[in-house]
Design a binder for these strands. Sequence first.
DNA 1: ACAACAATTGTAGTTTAGTTACAATTAGTG
DNA 2: CACTAATTGTAACTAAACTACAATTGTTGT
Lengths: 112, 112
Amino acid sequence: MITLSASEELQYLVDFDLLSKLVVGIGEVSDITGVPTRQIRYWEDKGILQSTKEAEGATRKYDYLSVKKILLIKELLDDGYTLDAAAKKVEARMKNVNEAFMKLAKPTKDEG
Amino acid sequence: MITLSASEELQYLVDFDLLSKLVVGIGEVSDITGVPTRQIRYWEDKGILQSTKEAEGATRKYDYLSVKKILLIKELLDDGYTLDAAAKKVEARMKNVNEAFMKLAKPTKDEG
DNA sequence: ACAACAATTGTAGTTTAGTTACAATTAGTG
DNA sequence: CACTAATTGTAACTAAACTACAATTGTTGT
């Protein structure tokens, strides 16, 4: 039996380069999070979220981290936080994860 | 400094329950993999791929593992394999990863 | 060369998903 | 109740995806 280090096991199982490219539509995000599409657009208009919308009229796409963020904001709202406060808190809370992703999502040759 | 085990670090960084729900449209898959949408549908018609298409006329969605599979098949095709041979080889090659995902993608309470 | 099969590609016409840009409504606070 | 925060509704439009035909291109054996 071979024992792998944490980061070895991680990279063996999850292709972060691919993961970072897995962007889903707003309807899918709504299904996953339970937050209505209308509300997701509203949050985005307020500057709380960023989607990968490249041009006017183009469809919004959300990556793993954005969806995670929406889930966390929703939790805090249910807890009684205001939207701005929730957004701020989540921003801080996700800082570590964001950084880890940046490092891991660098393009690499596929290893299966 | 706190040291985490492999699976602890993994679960801290990646929410597999969420990851398993991140399903992308066929256009996105085409962008990611470089395989034309027409070809993806063809592979699916042949039974080599499975999308989460729930009804006739509904749009196909692909999860992480499906996209990974497409990437691997494409590689083998470029290498000279026939489609069927490539599909078979990839099936075997992904068995471990598939199993690991099944275990990890069980719904859990969100931990940030 | 050519038959036979594997693999891919083209596209017209239709459906589904997502967009904007208005405005209206609901909830909380001094 | 005035004021702001937060959400919601929807009409008219655009983008993305679907099916179901058929045609084309590549490979292999005789």
